[in-house]
Simulated scan of single mutants.
Amino acid sequence: MAKKKAAGSLKNGRDSISRRLGIKKYSGQLVKPGNIIVRQKGSKFFPGENTKMGKDYTIYSVSSGKIYFYKKKSKMIIKVNES
């Protein structure tokens, strides 16, 4: 019997954990302060009123209210209207 494992079994079997990117809250939904609205790779969406962007480009709300997505020039902006 072989003492070593087959080379194929050593090279396979590794996979990274997915990053769960995407929109977490949609337009018209209510959010609380600190709720994550979008997780993204790079800045596809930009923060507007009452939202901020984290160092990993995550956009989150700063105050409670309704979410609105709108375009300004060619940028997609997310804002939270306080209610």
Results as ranks from 00 to 15, higher is better:
G34V: 02
L10N: 01
I23W: 01
E82M: 07
I23G: 07
K72L: 09
V62H: 06
D15L: 11
I67N: 02
M1K: 02
R14D: 07
I36D: 11
V80L: 09
F69L: 07
K4H: 05
S63T: 11
S83F: 12
Y57L: 06
T58H: 04
R19P: 07
Q29K: 09
I36Y: 02
R19I: 10
K79N: 06
F46H: 09
K75H: 03
S18N: 15
S9N: 12
N12Y: 04
A7S: 03
I37D: 01
M1H: 00
L30A: 06
Q40C: 14
N12P: 01
P33N: 09
K5I: 08
S9Q: 07
I59M: 04
I77G: 04
S63W: 00
V31G: 15
K25Y: 11
I67P: 03
T51P: 05
N35Q: 05
R20G: 15
K3H: 05
G42P: 12
N81I: 07
K73C: 10
L30K: 14
I17V: 14
K71D: 09
S61V: 12
F69C: 08
Y57F: 15
S74V: 05
G54H: 03
Y57A: 14
G34L: 00
R39Y: 02
K52W: 02
G8H: 03
I23A: 05
L10A: 00
K5Y: 09
N50E: 06
N50V: 00
K44T: 09
K71A: 11
G13S: 13
K71P: 01
K52E: 08
G42K: 13
P33H: 10
E82T: 10
E82D: 05
K32N: 12
G8C: 02
K55V: 08
D56C: 00
S27F: 03
K75G: 01
R20P: 03
Q40K: 12
K24Q: 12
Q40N: 13
S61T: 11
S74W: 00
Q29H: 13
R19L: 07
K72N: 10
S64N: 15
K25H: 15
